[in-house]
Design a protein around this nucleic acid. Structure first.
Lengths: 242, 242
DNA sequence: CCAAAATTCGTACGACCGTTCCAATATTTC
DNA sequence: GAAATATTGGAACGGTCGTACGAATTTTGG
């Protein structure tokens, strides 16, 4: 009757949840995973509140009560779907940034490499046909859904962004930090819109734009963002200027 | 018992709906508007499925059945909220573009003016404290909500975008149409992300970025997009090049 | 001013929601 | 192998949802 809980929400809680069943219940983890995967697939296409637990459990082929047993509640399941992959995504970004840092060998990391480290993992995952592609859809959709239990998390999940800011400041020293943040904001907009709405581009362009290939898409968005970052800062009207 | 309907969804149906009550029922239009405004305000902050009709009618100070009487269903009300302002927004964009065209006097409209015509109305509205600000939030939120009855509309509402493409092609003749569309896509991403998540920028920047002023925000996003549009096109690997 | 139509209001209905309980079954532990 | 525990499956609960209905009330039109 005692239920495994997943109330904690910091990313580190994932590890605890995973080793929760290290005594070897093969069937238990099987059920858990089937539920998570069914939920991920459904949440990828529709919002939190419109996906019912009956749909999820039917998709996973388990009983209705299994969700509450394994995850405590629908909200707990949602968080579990998030936690399973979120760490990996941010870790990939951090690793790319670190690698670029090593390559620079103490020098300044080129702007294009900073942007690539930021944008590549999300774009890459969104091109996956498997679970990671679904997860990216799940993530970008839920970010804007104020009814989702993760809304606060997303708003506060700024740590992995802050890690990039020193790199931008170093490679674009003529820009102030506020200007960097504005442009980072626009860049993330292009990223998220591209991920969630690539199909719309295909429709608008009537097949003219090839959205099927990963590398050219990444190149395009990186080029766009790089140019945006390199443009001159707007004049400030604060001080007494001619 | 005969109910006014609003089943039709093309933008032109708005006019008919508005003059539906031109025989002078002051009270009727009052109720209709109160419901629409209450719904607009609630849909601006939360998704379609999480806002109940009981909340809407309570907010508007009318009976529960009033919605079904005036709009047929919850979905009909949602469409009415959309229709009331959507035409105005696209018309504003078209007018700005036309004005820039006149100013160019037969010549090429500068890129910056094309982008301003595209971006200004949305940003402008989103800074409104009244209903138009709420509407912009409603619009950008619902666009990504696949459970919303308007999802198909948004996907097909590409007419007002197509109008801009010839202007981009003329001012950037070295770019192909596909490349234009990619960059237009990224630009819309920056726009929508800015509109929906300006609060997040404020949080990330810890107050460093001033998000309270309209003109500087517009200038920033236009500059960012302009630079992105002006960057060189990626090399094509198709033809036999050195 | 009066019949007719339009509109408002309170209420009830059937459907679906997330959750809970409990018996049945599988698994672990000694 | 038996006792204890973990997991599953079915049924039911209270609650909320969008909608429909009928009576009361207001407004319209002659």
């Amino acid at each position: 009757m005692t239920k495994p809980s997943s109330d904690n929400l910091d990313l580190e809680a994932l590890g605890r949840d995973l080793k929760m069943s290290d005594t070897g219940q093969a069937r238990t983890k099987e059920t858990r995973n089937r539920i998570i995967e069914g939920a991920e697939s459904l949440f990828a296409h529709r919002s939190y509140s419109t996906v019912s637990m009956r749909e999820i459990t039917a998709e996973a082929g388990v009983g209705l009560a299994a969700v509450n047993y394994h995850f405590g509640s629908k909200e707990g399941l949602f968080k579990a779907v998030f936690l399973r992959r979120a760490r990996d995504l941010n870790r990939e970004r951090a690793q790319l940034l670190e690698a670029a840092d090593k390559r620079a060998n103490g020098g300044v990391v080129p702007l294009r490499e900073v942007l690539t480290a930021l944008l590549r993992p999300g774009i890459r995952w969104s091109f996956d046909t498997g679970g990671r592609g679904l997860f990216i859809q799940f993530l970008t959709r839920s970010r804007l859904d104020h009814s989702s239990p993760l809304h606060e998390i997303f708003y506060n999940d700024v740590g992995h962004l802050r890690r990039f800011i020193p790199y931008f400041l170093r490679v674009l020293p003529e820009l102030g930090e506020d200007e960097i943040l504005w442009r980072l904001h626009f860049t993330l907009g292009a990223l998220h819109y591209t991920i969630t709405d690539l199909k719309r581009l295909e429709r608008i362009s009537e097949g003219l734009c090839d959205i099927s290939q990963f590398e050219p898409t990444l190149e395009r968005i990186v080029s766009f963002a790089e140019a945006g970052f390199r443009t001159a800062a707007p004049v400030r009207w604060a001080a007494g200027d001619p």
